[in-house]
Design a protein around this nucleic acid. Sequence first.
DNA 1: GATGCGTGGGT
DNA 2: TACCCAAGCAT
Length: 290
Amino acid sequence: MRAAAIADAVIAWFGEYARELPWREQGFPAWGILVSEVMLQQTQVARVVPRLAEWLDRWPTPAALAAEPPGEAVRMWHRLGYPRRALNLHAAAVVITERHGGEVPSDVEQLLALPGVGDYTARAVASFAFGERHPVVDTNVRRVIARAVAGLAEAGPPRIRADLEAMERLLPTDRRQAQLTNAGVMELGAIVCTARAPRCDGCPINALCAWRAAGYPAYDGPRARGQARFEGSDRQVRGLVMAELRASDIPVTRTELERAWPDAEQLTRAIDTLVRDGLAVSEGDAYRLP
DNA sequence: GATGCGTGGGT
DNA sequence: TACCCAAGCAT
């Protein structure tokens, strides 16, 4: 069967060429897996590795993190981006401590209920930390399936149900083999079947690839939405404000923030949304981490 | 279902 | 150099 051939080839390749990453070490805790998966949401592996080590060194358990103010999580986040993830991780640590006896749950439904844990992260933790048999679908997996199975150059817009079903069809029955298939297909998409310049010569499934067999046709389907320009955006201003708050032990005044971004109207909008998101707290005419 | 959300690496 | 893209999530 074609799906079995793909899984077998990917598993064999993964065993030989997988990168040595902290969260793949024997005995790496479920808490560490959860933290790594949240850090990896839209953030490259190379930037995550050092921050993950610092984080787990300071907070080796969910209870340790839950005992501190959420602002400390935001500060430890440094410049990983999307700092609401740090807030989510802190809130998740509180839930895990109060409702799950301090242990990261292995059940997908319970994982999905944690703040900042969505369809990808819940199944990644269930599969990688606990060996549960669930399809894990991220941007890499979607691209590999689009090419190898559907014969398309790109995956197009995400469709959760269909994407999960497509990966499910590739998963072997055995739990361990399913886990290795999840990790292997992701890894293949990350370092071989890349978005820009795929390294098809080194691909373990190039002989099975529908896109290759079709002669690498160009993509003509619907495009995933592109990102808005960053320079001059509210996101940039929010980032600058957060950098100021992280760097200070005392509240930062509005006047000091205006030095970082002179446009008063845009600065106000950034501050207001940060306060609404719980990433900043107002204290008189100044602001600090929560 | 479309948008907003940080920061930086790769080409 | 600009631009695309990155182990997504919440609303």
